[in-house]
């Protein structure tokens, strides 16, 4: 029983990181109708900068802020410099370009930083806290939980309560009509990339201390899990990303704890397959199924 509590609570913390990354995929899908396969590689590049900042200043807060800022800037650069110039009425060409970008970014990171994992020590202890005699979340897990909550609430307020959020949603739903109504749609697409990349960078930054360390491929598994989650929840649904992230996080934690770590990815893919068989548009999809 104690073991179950520990595994579930750890799963929730890991799940929130997956949920954040899935949320970043939802944001960009809504803004630009693209599954950004380069999301993880871009986030890892931003985290390399954050890592350097932490090494130089010793400050985790500065590292966190620089991951957000560099992630956002990278998003703007990729959208303005690359994606905007990809022609096509379907999302497919953009996705192919994104896959190409993954290869370029990972090769560049490999050339500059080598293949070795750079350990990133967590800002807080990873030893579990005890409630009575039962081990539950670690301090670092609580920190992740807090950061994830702040980001989710912040994004919720931005999208649902602000004028910018109204414009972002409008241009995501109907770009042509939005233009007629005076919304600068290209700018909204850029802001979507910016927000999405910043959130993704944050997710990778939160993840790395719980893994082997920072490497060009540090975000790959996270991307696969988050993509699964985004599909589970419906790419258009922020709530779906959150719930899906938690479900997948707990599933991975339970399978790893009770069976083996090797089975966890299989369990995630089995879940994905089941959901797609029952609801091809995703659990939380409203009506429009994905076109790609």
């Amino acid at each position: 029983m104690d073991r179950l509590v520990l595994l579930v609570s750890t799963g929730v913390a890991r799940g929130l990181v997956i949920a954040l990354f899935a949320l970043s995929l939802v944001i960009i899908w809504r803004a630009a109708r693209i599954v950004n396969f380069a999301q993880a590689a871009m986030a890892v590049a931003a985290v390399y900068v954050a890592f350097a900042v932490q090494q130089a200043t010793g400050s985790y807060v500065l590292a966190l802020l620089s991951a957000l800022v560099v992630g956002a800037l990278l998003g703007v650069a990729v959208e303005r410099g690359l994606m905007r110039h990809v022609a096509g009425r379907t999302p497919m060409p953009g996705m192919i370009v994104a896959i190409g970008l993954v290869m370029v970014l990972q090769a560049l990171l490999g050339i500059f930083f080598g293949p070795k994992h750079r350990p990133m020590t967590p800002v807080l202890s990873e030893a579990p806290l005890y409630v009575g005699d039962v081990p539950v979340l670690s301090r670092y897990d609580l920190f992740v939980l807090l950061v994830a909550l702040v980001v989710v609430v912040g994004l919720g307020v931005l999208f649902n309560r602000s004028t910018l959020g109204l414009q972002l949603r409008a241009s995501a739903v109907a770009p042509e009509v939005s233009r007629l109504l005076g919304v600068r749609v290209p700018r909204m697409v850029t802001i979507g990339w910016m927000l999405s990349s910043a959130v993704a960078a944050l997710a990778v930054l939160l993840l790395v201390p719980t893994e082997l360390g920072l490497n060009a491929h540090s975000g790959d598994v996270l991307f696969v899990h988050a993509f699964t989650v985004a599909v589970l929840g419906g790419l258009d649904s922020p709530a779906g990303a959150l719930v899906g992230g938690l479900v997948v996080g707990v599933l991975i934690s339970l399978v790893t704890g009770y069976a083996s770590a090797g089975l966890a990815p299989l369990a995630v893919l089995a879940l994905l397959t089941c959901v797609l068989l029952v609801r091809p548009g995703g659990i939380f999809a409203t009506k429009e199924a994905r076109t790609a």
Partner: peptide
């Protein structure tokens, strides 16, 4: 919200 969009800019 629909009616607010044209004013948002």
């Amino acid at each position: 919200e629909n009616v607010l969009v044209p004013l948002s800019g």
